[in-house]
Simulated assay, not measured.
Amino acid sequence: MKNVHYPKVAPFGYYVYVFVIDGVPRYIGKGKRDRYCEHVRVVRRGTGKSMWYTFLRKSLSEGREIVVKILADGLTSEQAKNVEIDLIAQHGRRAIGGGTLMNISAGGDGIDSEVAKEIHSRPGMKEKIGRAISAAAARPEVKQLRIRSLKQAYANPEVIRRVSDAVRNALQNPEVKERHSTGVHNSWAKPGEREKRIEAILQANQNPEVRARHVAANRKTHADPTVQAKRAAVFADPLFRERHAAATKSAMASPEIKEKVAAGLLKAWSHPELRKKAKDSASVRFSVQAERDRVATKTKLAAASRKAYCAEKGITNPGKGYCHIDREDFKRWLVGKKK
Rank of each mutant, 00 (worst) to 15 (best):
P157W: 06
V4L: 07
A10G: 00
D112W: 10
S59A: 15
A262G: 03
I198Y: 11
N169L: 14
I85Y: 03
K49D: 13
G192Y: 03
R241N: 10
E195M: 00
V335L: 12
G92M: 02
G97H: 04
A311Y: 04
R275C: 12
K276E: 15
K260T: 07
K313N: 00
L239F: 05
D237W: 07
K151L: 14
K128V: 13
R243E: 14
G29S: 04
K69S: 08
T100S: 13
A268P: 06
A302Y: 02
K81A: 13
A189N: 11
R41V: 01
V210T: 10
K230W: 10
N156R: 11
L71H: 02
G98L: 11
E328W: 09
V159D: 02
P191M: 02
F235C: 10
R139G: 06
V16P: 04
V159N: 01
R179D: 13
S77D: 13
R332H: 12
K331R: 15
R332L: 10
E175R: 10
E78G: 12
E114A: 15
A132P: 01
L266H: 12
G264M: 06
S187V: 08
L150N: 12
E291C: 06
K276Y: 07
V167A: 00
Q203V: 04
N186P: 01
I147C: 09
R294H: 07
L101P: 04
R45G: 06
H222Y: 12
L202A: 12
E118N: 15
E242Y: 06
H244Q: 14
L71M: 14
G130T: 05
K337A: 02
V184C: 04
G29W: 00
P208A: 06
L202C: 13
G98K: 15
G46C: 05
S77F: 11
R64Q: 11
K2C: 09
S77V: 11
G314M: 09
V288E: 13
H5N: 09
P7D: 00
A189P: 02
P225W: 07
K117F: 08
A263F: 05
V335E: 15
G29I: 03
E78S: 14
T47Q: 08
K32P: 00
V16Q: 08
H185Y: 10
Q206R: 15
G46R: 02
T297L: 10
A116Q: 09
A232H: 08
A138S: 15
E118P: 00
G31E: 04
A262Y: 05
L239C: 08
P225R: 00
G29P: 06
W333L: 01
Q144P: 01
